[in-house]
Amino acid sequence: MSNLFSVFDPTSSIMSTSMNWVSTFSGIIILPMMFWLVPSRMTIMWNKVTSTLHKEFKTLIGTNGINGSTFIFISVFTLILFNNFMGLFPYIFTSTSHLVVTLTMTLPLSLKFMIYGWINHTQLMLAHLVPQGTPPVVMPFMECIETISNLFRRSALAVPLATDMIAGHLLMTLLSNTGPSITYSIMMLLLVTRLPLLVLESALAIIQSYVFAVLSTLYSSEVN
């Protein structure tokens, strides 16, 4: 089992420097280059995607949301989508399969939303955390319990993202490890089986990034 999960361990290094996390930041170098070129099909397609996400996130946030806040969630969607797709290539470390990365994105967003709500909409937050008919003596305890539960509920977005990336990559690893010990006819069947799995993993990379961004937008709309 240790060899099976070793693909998720950040162990590769050059001169005692870990190189696994380089794939996470390589988009900073690759993606901005297309904005300096003549508008191509890639840029036109990406502009349509971002404009569609902006309209949808703007609808979810509502009219009370701060102008420009949708670009935060578009950036989160782009970051997760890029790292999910980078993990589909061979010998590239999947950073979104680790809770270190996913929790780093969810915890600041959750804390930011809650602090913003407590500062700007204190009465609304108090009314939202206390159920109707709660005795006044129990209200302070309910506030603490509901605040902690909301923080954990919003931070739980990191768990499905990491587990889904791990599950798909483990299945692909298990199928790949059987290659040297099977015949050519079964290997052809294995390759045909892996193609739909690769398509499914590509779709899952898009769905997970979209779900993460949409749920983060919905959580932010609760404090507006």
Rank of each mutant, 00 (worst) to 15 (best):
T94R: 01
T183M: 02
D164T: 01
F77L: 03
V223W: 08
T178E: 08
M187V: 01
T11L: 04
F25Q: 12
G133V: 07
N224G: 09
M34P: 00
I80Y: 03
R153K: 13
M19W: 09
T63A: 12
K55V: 12
T178I: 09
M15K: 12
V199G: 02
L151M: 14
L60I: 15
M187T: 01
D164M: 00
L53P: 04
L197Q: 05
L215T: 11
W118N: 14
I145S: 12
S51R: 12
T96Q: 01
L79R: 06
P196S: 04
N83L: 08
N83C: 03
V223Y: 09
V192W: 06
N150I: 15
S155W: 08
T193Q: 13
N120V: 03
P32W: 11
Y91T: 09
P39V: 15
V192L: 13
P131C: 13
T122G: 05
S110M: 14
L126V: 14
L197H: 04
L151S: 06
T96D: 01
A158N: 06
L107H: 08
W46T: 10
I148W: 09
M42R: 13
L197K: 03
A158P: 02
V101R: 08
I74Y: 03
L191W: 10
T217Y: 04
Y184F: 09
M34W: 10
M33V: 13
S26W: 09
N67E: 15
V130I: 15
I74A: 03
L197R: 00
E146R: 13
H54Y: 02
T78P: 00
V38A: 11
L60M: 14
I44V: 11
N20P: 05
I145D: 09
I72W: 04
I72R: 01
G27F: 05
D9V: 09
L37W: 07
N150S: 15
L161V: 12
E201C: 03
T106A: 15
L126F: 06
L99K: 06
R194G: 00
I14V: 14
I30R: 13
G133P: 01
S181T: 01
N20V: 14
S16P: 03
E56S: 11
L124F: 06
T50W: 02
M105F: 13
L195W: 09
M188F: 07
L174N: 02
L197F: 00
V223H: 07
L109N: 07
S155F: 03
I145K: 12
E56A: 13
M187N: 03
L174W: 00
I182W: 03
S97V: 04
T178K: 07
L197E: 04
T163L: 06
L157S: 08
K55F: 05
T163V: 10
Y91F: 02
P108Y: 13
K55G: 11
Q123I: 05
I92Y: 00
P180W: 02
